[in-house]
Amino acid sequence: MARKTYIAAINEALFEEMRRDPMVLLIGEDVRIGVFAGTRGLHKEFGDKRVLDTPISELAVAGAGVGAAATGLRPVVDLMFGTFLYLAFDQIANQAGAMRYMFGGQTRLPLVYMVQNGTGASAGHHHSQSVHQFFMNMPLIKVIMPATPYDVKGLLKAAIRDDNPVIFLNHLALGGQRGEVPDEEYLIPIGQGEIKRSGSHVTVCSVGLMVHHSLKAAKELEKEGIDVEVIDLRTLKPWDEALVLHSVAKTGRFVAVDEGHMVCGAASEWAATVAEKAFHDLKAPVKRVTSKPVPIPFSPKLEKAVVPSPEEIADAVRQVLGTRVPA
């Protein structure tokens, strides 16, 4: 067991899967050089064919991923930033996200679209958005956003081995995050959340960077005698509903925290599910904490203010506990 960065864990997962299966290849923009270092070194070991730089043509590259996956390959398509997936929307929504079903099960699509997602780099609106909620609306697409080095490695390996299209969202702000990563091989099942902190008073559910903000909030609230359970869903679709409902049965209170927007967003989906299926467990109304409904501003101060902060999360927890009068 060694402490490794989130990016190093991504890199290890790619090395291991490419060594394991010759049908795994990496295609995308600047994958040889590895802009975020996640793909660095792969070209040296696997060569031009398996680490394939492409033109900046997200639509065609995303489509090529579909065609390659439908004909026997297991491509990892690196499209760099979550927002760049917008350029590839047609091929993801109309082809990857429907092909197997639309053609009556004639094919399977072992296909991973990998991007950086979310805020934290003061990169402005075009490089800082959280795009997961759009893909959660595509019935046959799996959506993953890990929060730790351990999770990113185990889930990326599982995503590459999965026979369905996966949107794999590495969090932009977490690349340098360090954590324990086992030396021996492991996989994390897609769709399985994890309790990152056990607690009894309130359930806080999140993914990605928000898991860390939620943990910070929980630490702060501990001083007030509030015991918070923090769930990291890890996979946004299919999401671990059972884990959440089980936790709410214990705590009776639910706060959904998401870096995406509130309208039709992940937090709203979780909150609605809890309100619908665990109504009688609830001691207080559910609460959502999401990014403000504006584009992501550039200024570090403003960017920070747009996404949920540990303080806002703590405040939401106090609200559902009735220890704070809502403003």
Partner: peptide, 17 residues
């Protein structure tokens, strides 16, 4: 225009294999 990328990917697959 939805099929051009997929055909390109199938070509890529043949080349790769």
């Amino acid at each position: 225009g939805g099929g051009l990328g997929v055909a390109t990917g199938a070509g890529l697959s043949a080349w790769y294999r």
